[in-house]
């Protein structure tokens, strides 16, 4: 009986310390020191309205825009997820083959061999904000034709929005699709 009392009391104390105090202390300090990151790295427009988050991808269906990765959840960040297709899954193979056909239609000037695999595969989170630099530059001929902006200028935009590997060697260089498209829209507005 004595041991049971010890166990219950210890459990409640640990719940208070590890569950509540620890989390609240970190939240308090983080909100005071790094409010931008702690609140979700939100991007605000000129009117102060929230456009999105630097870290969360968005849907770009318009062919004038740079397009991001396949998202089975349509970038609905209320949740997250993928269809979890196995490499042998027929639905996945069919979806990818169709994406290649669509690419040929939308980008007649760019051969399929120039289509990087990240553009036609579903990301792990369904919210991937990035594409590879190659996946951005391969869309330039299409966007240049549709918007009339010279290809070199678009290439410069892509390079401006390319984030190199962290510390110079970790991971992969990426292009943030949302920020790239915001820069593109700014250029179009000019």
């Amino acid at each position: 009986m004595r041991m049971l009392a010890t166990i219950i009391r210890t459990s409640l104390v640990l719940m208070l310390v590890c569950g509540l105090l620890y989390n609240l202390a970190v939240t308090g300090i983080a909100q005071a020191m790094m409010p931008h990151q702690a609140s979700g790295s939100l991007i605000k427009g000129d009117d102060g309205e929230i456009i999105g988050s630097e870290l969360i991808g968005q849907n770009f269906k318009d062919l004038n825009d740079f397009q991001g990765r396949v998202s089975s959840i349509d970038y609905n960040a209320e949740g997250s997820g993928t269809p979890n297709y196995a490499p042998s899954n027929e639905d996945m193979i069919k979806r990818t083959a169709e994406a290649v056909e669509q690419w040929k239609k939308d980008n007649p000037d760019v051969p399929v061999s120039e289509l990087p695999i990240d553009l036609i595969t579903n990301s792990g989170s369904g919210l991937d904000p990035n594409i590879s630099p190659k996946a951005a530059s391969t869309q330039i001929p299409r966007i240049s034709k549709l918007t009339g902006i010279p290809a070199q200028e678009l290439q410069a935009l892509v390079e401006d929005n390319t984030k190199p590997r962290e510390l110079g060697f970790l991971g992969e260089p990426v292009v943030n699709v949302l920020q790239l498209n915001l820069a593109l829209h700014e250029r179009i507005a000019k």
Binding site: V100, V112, G124, K134
Partner: peptide
């Protein structure tokens, strides 16, 4: 499918990793 697959298997992966 004849695409540029030098990145490897990207289904279910994130570009930054």
């Amino acid at each position: 499918l004849g695409i540029d697959h030098h990145q490897g298997s990207m289904e279910g992966k994130e570009v930054r990793f």
